[in-house]
Design a binder for these strands. Sequence first.
DNA 1: CGAGTAATTGACCAACGTCAAACACTGTGG
DNA 2: CCACAGTGTTTGACGTTGGTCAATTACTCG
Lengths: 236, 236
Amino acid sequence: MVTPPLELPFIRTGPFDLATQGATLNRRDRERLALIAVRMRVPADRILFERGAPADAVYSISHGIVRSFRRAPHGRRRVLALLFPGDLSGLARQGRYVNTAETVTAATLFKVPLDQLAAMARGDPGLAFSLLCKATHSLREAQRHTLIVSRAYAPGRVAMFLNMMDETAGRSQRSARVAARLSTADIAEYVDLTPGAVSRALADLESRAVIARRPKGGIRIIDRDRFDHVVNGGHL
Amino acid sequence: MVTPPLELPFIRTGPFDLATQGATLNRRDRERLALIAVRMRVPADRILFERGAPADAVYSISHGIVRSFRRAPHGRRRVLALLFPGDLSGLARQGRYVNTAETVTAATLFKVPLDQLAAMARGDPGLAFSLLCKATHSLREAQRHTLIVSRAYAPGRVAMFLNMMDETAGRSQRSARVAARLSTADIAEYVDLTPGAVSRALADLESRAVIARRPKGGIRIIDRDRFDHVVNGGHL
DNA sequence: CGAGTAATTGACCAACGTCAAACACTGTGG
DNA sequence: CCACAGTGTTTGACGTTGGTCAATTACTCG
């Protein structure tokens, strides 16, 4: 009934690299999940679930972007992950969601009841293994995020973010121009800067001819070498 | 032959909270892993594997502390995780280790060949599920780490670190006084500060009677309420 | 009781946050 | 087609905070 049932086509690597093999949940896994998932369309800026709420489902993103975040004391939010098509959202602990999830753009996603997913995974090594791959992928991304946030050099953070978006875009044509869909404020939340600092960083990278900003918020990488240099920790 | 075979007793939560149930790999999982694991003792400051090297095994920590890190351009290291008894080390991607791992203290650990682990997990839903739990736990920790590193207020970072150590100590008596085993420099690497900044932060927390430093590097939390306040983002 | 290492402290500097104002862009309605 | 609101971006001035670098003090272990 759902076509494609659950598109999770982006797991290129495995848990402890168990799976250089695949990228996607295989057909069988997708079909099995489709049996228990509910498809839903959600407009932008809609909360999917709140931190602390009983965790009853996992969301598989089919289209659109979702952000996972926590609220800091003084109103500022700390985004812990940006989720793209193929990603799963719903990290929990002791029955409660750990973060709040909200759509950034309009999105279509599949809601998978947790109890059913757990039951299914327990009896299905292939599925459990696939989920392990996903979790491992998320772990790598989280570590990359830590790397981004721990850099002092603002253009470095932004460059790493752009690089991430660039890679993500490679996963699917759909999300190719995603970066353009994200506001300066969205980027700022993810890389832990203020919108102003992001703006300055982008201006800096542009003035040095590393990137070029196109109208509509599009960004193009002009000088790959120097861009990579900055991404890898370089200071210019 | 190995007793306990693989002590992984600290998974309190499940993947998407699939497992509020258990904490530990169950007996069966441990026994199965023991069949393919090799026990080894390693002194402090020994590299287990280097980033980029072919990932052929996962290490299960039985005793001691391991750090997972990457080298930044200017010699500075960025620690991405501190691993304690019960944790697994060996995150890889496309057949290569993602980070370098090194013992912080002397440690005893079990080396589990990756291919065998993968094969076993593929055919064993319970094991795959347990590994999923572990990975999910690591993911939560990684996000917490991001939270730590993204705070501007140095005493806040240090307090969050101490809180983490406090929780970890609760997992086992063995690691109770672990914090004492970590040098200022070790802490600094994890929370992304300089040793000097950590020192200042500790001095600050102490001068405000939030913590007290005991000889031998021991740290005691004096004022839980204000400590928690700082941990949760408060500024004093 | 010393040698060596780790922790602490101080002075200066660089970089971002903050706050606020100026500006640009988008889409609307006249 | 243009004026205009509303939002999002950019820019400026100033303050805060940790990094840097180096010197000093504690500590540990022979």
